[in-house]
């Protein structure tokens, strides 16, 4: 999505852009996200991403190459030569450019790695991404096991983030905001529902987040619990899922039943970046994402490739990248 935003900015400055996308459609993960408005806009920026995407899709100034995977990036004189493979036809071709913007994004954390949370084993344990897709495509949250509307819902934060046991000693920055916003959507669609929000620390998400957080705090059916649940399991034949956690407030181990449990998964570096971009001189930073300080000579990064970002910051980062590209091209001429 950051690549699209950056392409949009560059075409407006009169630059010819080729957009290389390995998937059949453009848009990245953001194309799967849902609008998180309740009775008012909750500033999730999904509509902004949708508009950016439509703008680029309809633009004549952007050459779209979907189903194209980059195989090699090579410096060639003052510019770059990219070897790309058409994944459908299996043929390779060459793309030349004066500058390259890397916007290969992130990989969502694979929640099955946290076996104790039962993702993949219990149908009613979803990831944040699953819930995004469910809300976007079906319009409301349902239990996958029986299609019923869930009433008691738990959100578990920091699944795959701030967790050294899996080597992710970083915050994914977007999860608190997306989880709280989706929880608000569920609350507004089903006034009888109750949300239990298990978290370590609530991370602010810029100047547009405060209102959403306050609305959640003031909601009597919204419970903030500072704890990381240790286990999710089925309790004999009883309906729902049992969750165990040590709660800081009471200092006791609590066990509660839930209809639906949402794991707020974080972001991982995209493994496709390894090897390919090292040839171009890019190196990973301390968190495993591409270190933007290593960008030089006409290679730039935009969006989550250089570290987790929410949509707003991805777009801002893309605009910043566009400015850097223009400045670089100006210096070349």
């Amino acid at each position: 999505m950051a690549g699209i935003a950056c392409a949009g900015e560059l075409t407006q400055a009169g630059i010819t852009v080729t957009l290389l996308e390995k998937e059949p459609v453009i848009g990245g993960w953001a194309a799967d996200y849902c609008c998180k408005a309740t009775d008012q806009c909750n500033r999730c920026f999904v509509c902004v991403a949708d508009k950016e995407r439509e703008g680029v899709r309809l633009s004549d100034a952007v050459t779209l190459l979907t189903n194209h995977q980059v195989r090699e990036v090579e410096k060639n004189g003052s510019g770059y030569r990219l070897r790309v493979e058409n994944k459908v036809e299996g043929v390779e071709k060459e793309v030349r450019a004066d500058a390259v913007v890397l916007a290969t994004g992130f990989k969502p954390f694979d929640a099955t790695q946290k076996g104790e949370l039962g993702y993949g084993r219990y149908a009613d344990v979803l990831t944040g991404l699953d819930l995004e897709r469910m809300l976007r495509n079906q319009g409301s949250a349902r239990k996958p096991s029986d299609g019923q509307v869930p009433n008691k819902i738990a959100f578990i934060q920091c699944v795959g983030s701030r967790d050294e046991s899996i080597g992710h000693l970083y915050c994914s920055k977007a999860c608190c905001a997306y989880a709280l916003r989706m929880a608000r959507v569920i609350r507004s669609q089903n006034p009888g529902s109750e949300i239990f929000f298990y978290y370590m620390d609530i991370q602010p998400a810029g100047r547009l987040f405060d209102e959403t957080l306050k609305a959640c705090e003031e909601d009597p059916n919204f419970h903030f619990i500072r704890a990381i649940p240790s286990k999710i399991y089925r309790y004999y034949q009883k309906p729902g899922l049992m969750m165990r956690s040590l709660e800081a407030e009471s200092g006791t181990i609590e066990e509660k039943f839930f209809d639906l449990i949402v794991l707020s998964i974080g972001m991982e570096p995209n493994p496709e970046n390894e090897g390919l971009w090292e040839k171009a001189g890019l190196k990973p930073g301390r968190e495993g994402f591409v270190d933007p300080a290593t960008c030089k000579d006409g290679i730039f990064v935009a969006g989550t490739v250089s570290g987790p970002k929410d949509i707003e910051r991805s777009i801002m980062n893309a605009k910043q990248a566009a400015l850097s590209v223009l400045r670089y091209l100006e210096g070349q001429s």
């Binding site: 609008c35 408005a37 999904v46 509509c47 508009k51 976007r136 319009g139």
Partner: peptide, 13 residues
């Protein structure tokens, strides 16, 4: 009726 651009479901509803 407030709607989001990608909410055809809601529009029809």
């Amino acid at each position: 009726c407030p709607v989001a651009p990608a909410s055809g479901q809601r529009f029809a509803e």
